[in-house]
Design a protein around this nucleic acid. Structure first.
Length: 398
DNA sequence: CGGGCAGCCATTGATAGTAT
DNA sequence: ATACTATCAATGGCTGCCCG
């Protein structure tokens, strides 16, 4: 920065000749002034940049929770539109997809309690802008998670499965079904990856062995083993899944503490520390406390599962579809598994599973419901699924 | 007080879409 | 067919916190 000036000074005539050369040095003087002006301009630009950078908008940072807690791909506009539609004609039948959207809107309102009212106070253009910023935050958080899991999952697979050739942390090309370790984890639970016919069939994508979102991949099962006669046994209890979840929602390093039935104590400690401080904004805690997640939710599990599935695959950038496997539908399947169980018995099992998760992630002494659920001013149509369950219960008792 | 860890953000690089 | 644009994911840097 100071180089041009010093060069210039070096070129100036000796002091004794200054007076006599005054007129003839004017080009140099002009050049010097110009340089000074340019330097000043650079300084100004620097300052401007210093002011400009790190302008963090509220909406973008709030949006970071959305992919993790609410919806994986679905545009927020769709959720809003569905709620608007329901407010207009409150009675009437709703399709399964519409119910799903509405549940999403309710989740959205729970995750961002200010959202519903804020939206009502904005005109169309403002709300459009807000949604855009929320989406920006949402997608960037998803990208961050993908980035961290890319490396972490590789190291976990190396440790857990001990593949003959280790997965590289920075490269995804050798993952997916080409790789035996990844293939085993991605393999649908109904099939046996050890069977060479299955293996070849999946790799060649023969019609008999299409891998779609409609079967649960092996990596989601406890010990990565599934019982073909009871596919629910051990489902969602895999170490890999819990580790991925913890890496995203508590912290990457805390994921390594998932072992046996021991539960994380660090989170409670974190919370205690966080509470000790008076200004909450400054305290860096884990994502879970930042976004106010006090218990494990189905959508969060679905998010983690998709992230891990993606990390195991060999596709290098986010796409909704990988071969015959659609992440959006896969995510829906997981959410439906939890949110829309076929009957009371299944509901009880699901709740038990969620409790298991919460204990696993947050620890045994963690208090879940410090804050009551948000009271919604919207047409609450989770009733639909409740009614279905009551229906099923009545049917079962007959 | 410095190194390591987490989370966030601006920038960059790639790609898909569109207009000419 | 080409150039331009917008969008999106990946990357690397920055900041604040914790702990030895």
């Amino acid at each position: 920065m100071s180089m041009p000036e010093s060069n210039c000074a070096g070129n100036l005539p000796a002091p004794t000749t200054v007076v006599s050369l005054c007129v003839s040095t004017s080009p140099q003087a002009r050049a010097k002034r110009k340089i000074a002006a340019l330097v000043e301009e650079v300084e100004n630009l620097k300052q401007e940049k210093a002011i400009k950078q790190r302008k963090t908008t509220y909406y973008v940072s709030q949006g970071r929770a959305l992919r993790r807690m609410v919806v994986l791909y679905c545009p927020l506009e769709d959720l809003v539109a569905e709620n608007d539609r329901r407010c207009k004609d409150s009675d009437g039948d709703h399709t399964i997809e519409q119910n799903c959207l509405q549940r999403g809107y309710i989740e959205l309102s729970k995750t961002l309690p200010w959202f519903h009212e804020k939206l009502a106070s904005l005109d169309f253009e403002e709300s459009e802008d807000m949604l855009k910023q929320l989406k920006r935050g949402a997608d960037s958080a998803r990208g961050d998670d993908t980035g961290t899991l890319k490396e972490l999952v590789a190291s976990w697979v190396n440790i857990e499965c001990r593949p003959p050739s280790f997965l590289r942390a920075d490269d995804k090309h050798h993952r997916g079904f080409v790789n035996d370790a990844c293939g085993k984890l991605l393999c649908p639970a109904e099939w046996c990856w050890e069977d060479p016919v299955v293996r070849a069939g999946i790799r060649d994508r023969t019609t008999a062995f299409i891998v779609s979102e409609n079967s649960w991949p092996m990596f989601m099962y406890e010990n990565y083993e599934a019982d073909a006669k009871n596919l629910e046994r051990g489902l969602f209890k895999s170490k890999l899944l819990v580790m991925g979840f913890k890496a995203i929602f508590t912290s990457p390093s805390s994921a390594n503490e998932v072992d046996g039935d021991g539960d994380g104590i660090d989170i409670i400690e974190n919370h205690r520390r966080a509470r000790r401080r008076s200004d909450h904004a400054k305290v860096k805690t884990c994502v879970a406390s930042i976004i106010g997640m006090r218990k494990v939710t189905p959508r969060a599990i679905a998010y983690a599962a998709c992230q891990i599935r993606f990390a195991l695959s060999n596709i290098t950038s986010w796409r909704t579809v990988d071969g015959d496997f659609d992440y959006q539908l896969f995510w829906n399947n997981i959410v439906d598994f939890f949110e829309d169980p076929p009957g009371p018995a299944a509901l009880a099992r699901v709740n038990k599973l969620l409790e298991w998760w919460t204990r696993k992630v947050f620890g045994r002494n963690h208090r879940q419901d410090l804050t009551p659920d948000v009271i919604l001013h919207i047409s609450v149509n989770s009733l639909a699924s409740q009614r279905q369950q009551m229906e099923d219960a009545a049917f079962d008792s007959n």
